[in-house]
Amino acid sequence: MLRRFLPALVPTLLAIAAFCASLSDPYFMEIFIMVGLIGTVAVAWNLMAGFTGLVSLGHSLFFGIGAYTVAYGQVGFGLGPLATWPIAALLALASALFIGLLCFRYGLRGYFFSIATLAFSEVAFLLVSATLWLGRSDGMMLPSSPDALRYLQFDHKWPYGLIIVGFLALTLFISQAVLTARPGYYWRALRDNEGAAEALGVPAMRYKLLVFALSAVVTAIGGAIFANTFAFVDPRSTLGVELSIQLLVFGIIGGLGLLWGPLLGAALLIPAGELLRNYLGSGFHGVNIVAYALLLIVLALLLPQGLGGVLAARLRRRAPEKPAADAKALAMEAAQ
């Protein structure tokens, strides 16, 4: 039991430690919040991309649905998170099922699926950017209310950090539970060979919709937390393609084959981006972005399996069988 949930437990404990360490400084807490929030969303994204082979480039759609449901729910109807979060989850669920049915019904795979999801999120981005009652491209402020607790409005950032620790832990444990049960096996089989999986009794459509729905709902909750944390939403930061690309980058750098890989990617790259901005951002304009891009290129070249892949291989090296077999192969090659 403990062993089964180790990949969820260890990152959760590390996150709690990071949260405690960030309590000293609001700036650190802000970075912790971004890492925890986007990292967790990237974990949900990776259930599709890494484990099922469905690379969505439109996950900002679900993040935006979450963020705007919270914002408009409060501005338009005076609703608090108790109401808006479940509504956000339901809206994301409905959108994921709609897009999923459409894509999977017509057999969109690989790049075509990615582009279709990108198209949906771009349409949403443009629609929201042009909709007056959603604040157009200027975005929406969530007004502060005297009933602060009902709207999750705190004077400090740390309570949001605490919420995000819970969000992260819940996502990791639920994901690990599902991955080690039937759906996880079916997803990996579908990722690898859909025809063979179906012939072995895997209902492809149902399980692809399941992972899409789960991933979208978690992402929408992430968007909802974002809106409450920053009390501000705009199309660029919640619906833009930059967010979807970020998830992809965190996944690739952190390691797609691992539950916690994308979280590791976020934990490395978000602080790295901040550091570069602090030390280089004041100099030549844009030089920090160039440095960030260089960092990504170097990491991608050095670690094609992702940082997590390297770490996992290190941990696994305790089993002596593999190097022995390699040594044997080498010896045979040398003998020839």
Partner: peptide
């Protein structure tokens, strides 16, 4: 049930896990 002429196990899975995918059906 059927087998395929071009045999390709599910990647990153052990022999047991490969068979488990099929056993999950029932």
């Amino acid at each position: 049930a059927r087998t395929f002429q071009i045999v390709r196990p599910f990647q990153g899975m052990s022999v047991l896990e490969n068979v488990k995918v099929a056993a999950f059906g029932r």
